[in-house]
Amino acid sequence: MPLDWAYVAVFALVGAVMAVLPLGVVWLLAPRSQYAHKRIPYESGIVPFGEAWSQFHVRYYLFGLAFLLFDIEVIYIYPWAVVLRELGGFALVEMAVFLGVLGVALAYAWKKGALEWA
């Protein structure tokens, strides 16, 4: 089984090398102009003003956090999914309770407007 993951590691390494190789080809083949303005970040043709960063709305954080919590929930369900057939009705009731509580969480977030983009 660790062998499976050795494949994953080697795939990641070989993939990274094969992805970087064409960058090397470009570095060798492509011309380089000395024109300084080429490096100005694109801003619809005007000279960029201020920083690229501007303060973002807190809603990104709310969606990020809600995602994290529900993602953790999903993780807890995977083991259940595999053994449900074996354990039967009792396991089903347990999952109904588990999902019920998380349904309440979703309803709360919905009611409080945490799922609104505005």
Partner: peptide, 25 residues
């Protein structure tokens, strides 16, 4: 393959390169 690779002014070169490699991997 023959086009110049431009890194924007004050961009973060390492992360600028690592990001597409990570997506491809």
């Amino acid at each position: 393959l023959q086009k110049e690779s431009i890194v924007p002014h004050r961009a973060d070169v390492v992360l600028f390169t690592a990001a597409p490699v990570l997506v491809a991997v």
